[in-house]
Design a protein around this nucleic acid. Structure first.
Lengths: 118, 118
DNA sequence: ACGATATTTATCGAATTATTGGATTAAGAG
DNA sequence: CTCTTAATCCAATAATTCGATAAATATCGT
């Protein structure tokens, strides 16, 4: 059941520090970033960073490798690719909500006026 | 700050019932599905369904309209589009992990053996 | 207005998640 | 071997979330 994996991936990214960390890792590319460096960049205690990185790793979104004393984390593009693929196929009307609807980005623009009509 | 909205959208989808509900709503298209019908489909108590739908609505992923006694929920394609856009731009190396990497979908194919042996 | 249907709200307990400080493991330098 | 640095593990705490029952609100047909 891949839905389960998708849920874990979504949950992993649905957290401020983890989303930020993942973005940095994506930007960093193959080289990756050491856990401590990441903790320093995001200004969170090492133990907290470790916790969040473990969550990302558990969700399969990042990989780790040791480089001497440091542990380098890298974004797993294939996993992210898979997540995007699932969302596109299952949550975008089957035929990619991209390209279909031409360039509307409500999450970028709308400030979300009000949800409840009182 | 759209990162905040993205996080809420991800969190909203990172739950079994909500992901399932959203998938059904996407499939249903414009017509949408009534809250009660959704609760029945997913076999969760109406109040629980209402709770989850509220989460989706709060994240801006679904819209609601009243049809006589029923409240019809519909997927907000624009919001989903925005989410996909953000993920593509910020979490896929800047230049769409799709199409770039040719056709690898780890979440679809790989059973990912050593992630959790449960 | 009344009774029936549909949905939301309120509330509670159980479970999960987030955060932190300190202990522990691993690797390199002297 | 000891010291230093890097990262994770552990335990305790705080906060959030989930699921279910019960009460409240809104709408419809009569």
């Amino acid at each position: 059941m891949q839905a389960n994996r998708v849920i874990r991936a979504l949950a992993a990214l649905a957290q401020e520090h983890r989303l930020a960390a993942f973005r940095l890792l994506v930007q960093a590319g193959e080289d990756g970033i050491a856990a401590g460096t990441l903790a320093d960049m995001l200004d969170v205690p090492p133990s907290s960073m470790s916790f969040h990185l473990a969550q990302l790793a558990n969700a399969g979104l990042v990989t780790q490798r040791r480089a001497s004393r440091s542990i380098i984390y890298s974004a797993d593009y294939a996993a992210m690719n898979g997540l995007m693929g699932y969302l596109t196929e299952n949550c975008c009307g089957g035929v990619s909500c991209f390209g279909n609807a031409a360039g509307l980005h409500s999450l970028d623009r709308e400030p979300d006026p009000e949800r409840k009509s009182a």
